[in-house]
């Protein structure tokens, strides 16, 4: 019982698969939910609060980098299926890079930031990566959006950190079942 609590990745495979499936479904459900939100006023078109980043941020430290990247990829495929190739490229690049950054910042004993700081770093990385993809597709003009996206990333990253703090006990409980 104690041993299970401390090493998720050495636990029974069925439990691991079930929990990863749950996280993947949660990420897609949050992505889908966001698509229902009305356009946000005062913000660049296409900007979303990135609620599913809560799941990738949790996964980055809670279940390991590999599975976290798979969940980020799954989000990208979902974006591609529902919103086309452009959305796939933007979501995948943003998701993979931000997951990587958040995993690095959440490494045990090397934690320069709190949950809010990690959320902000992840959101900024996500938006910056998307802007890079967009500038490859459409040219440097998209960098006009940089200031808006940076401010927006600070807000959404803070939200991600707060919401993860609230949901952490539930997620940790499910993981350790």
């Amino acid at each position: 019982m104690q041993e299970k609590k401390h090493d998720f990745n050495r636990g029974p495979a069925a439990r691991r698969v079930a929990f990863l499936g749950l996280l993947g479904a949660l990420a897609l459900a949050l992505s889908g939910l966001e698509m229902l939100l009305p356009p946000l006023p005062m913000l660049p078109p296409g900007a979303k609060p990135g609620l599913s980043n809560i799941v990738t941020m949790y996964a980055a430290s809670g279940v390991g980098l590999g599975p976290a990247l798979v969940i980020a990829l799954l989000k990208g495929v979902f974006a591609g299926v529902t919103r086309g190739l452009t959305a796939f490229l933007m979501s995948t690049c943003g998701g993979l890079l931000s997951t990587l950054v958040m995993a690095l910042l959440l490494r045990p004993k090397k934690r320069p930031f709190g949950l809010v700081g990690v959320g902000i770093a992840g959101a900024v990385t996500h938006n910056a990566a998307q802007l890079c993809v967009a500038s490859c597709l459409a040219g440097g003009v998209v960098w006009y959006y940089l200031p808006f996206l940076l401010v927006f990333a600070v807000l959404t990253g803070t939200l991600t950190g707060l919401l993860l703090r609230v949901t952490l006990p539930v997620l940790e409980h499910l993981r350790n079942l």
């Binding site: 990690v118 902000i120 808006f148």
Partner: peptide, 22 residues
């Protein structure tokens, strides 16, 4: 396993990003 909600360097990080945006 998880860091606190806020740590001392979070606020400077946010301010730095806002400064770049400005």
């Amino acid at each position: 396993k998880w860091p606190a909600l806020l740590r001392p360097r979070d606020m400077p990080l946010a301010l730095l990003i806002l400064a770049v945006a400005a």
